[in-house]
Amino acid sequence: MPPTSDTPLAAGADADAARAQAPSSSQAPDKVVVQDLTVRYGDKVVLDKASFEIREHEIFGIIGPANSGKTSFLRALNRMDDFTEGMTVEGRVSLDGRDVRAWRNVYALRRRIGVVFPLPVGLPMTIYDNVALAPRLGGERNKRELDRIVEHCLQRAALWDEVKDRLDSLGSLLSGGQQQRLTIARALSQKPDLLLLDEFSIAVDPVTTMRIEDVLKELKHEITIVLVTNLVQQARRLADRTAFFLNGECVEVAPTEDLFTGPIKDQRTRDYVEGRFG
């Protein structure tokens, strides 16, 4: 079901600005279109015929209890299923109008999609090398250009000031919150135009969580963000529109505030956001 344009949008001025840039339409063009997406692990269906779209320059929230298919959606989006035994994907996910399955070079697809995982993964190399890894994999060898990318990405992830004097120390020695920002910097280093965050704040303290949330609000001017979270309030703070997943079903997609205060379309959504289950 496409979101109707007469729904009152409670998005902030940022989203409005982004929308204004879109040609000949009151809303931004679709970045990602999901049609009848079904994901299975073996015989178990973890996501069942989900259909929705994600618009450019928005933060798209996905909320829902555990095992509702949130992460499976992200994995289908950047084709992690290619190397995952037993994971099968049916239906269609398209990025900028092109089915992700039609990309011959899955690595090129993944370079356009940054991913931040639930637990911070500081790769066992220096802070510098962590952020420079993706550009290097892409063939960048120029030291000055790498320096520039590293500084730029660490600054955008609000980590530069804390680590600029010790870029040569191991990334895995940083605190959990710092590592998660390092992960974000690393995800940005490949210049993605889509950033996926999978419950990024699980292992992060509240202060750092707020800092990262501020970073995301800034980033959405440049890129599209998909925010999977089990914190309903985090989705409410950040997401322009939000999908509610439950047991593999995409129950509802709406402007975020509607899920909380709008007319009730599905009682289960309201029950979940108000904390009555899940």
Binding site: F83, L109, R110, P124, L137, Q190
Partner: peptide
């Protein structure tokens, strides 16, 4: 070597050989 290292590198667009040579073997 934690599975997360491989996934993180794969998500960066590393090919399987790049994952093995740049991340798994050093780790």
């Amino acid at each position: 070597v934690p599975e997360g290292f491989r996934e993180a590198a794969e998500a960066l667009g590393a090919t399987r050989w790049q994952v093995i040579f740049k991340v798994v073997l050093p780790a």
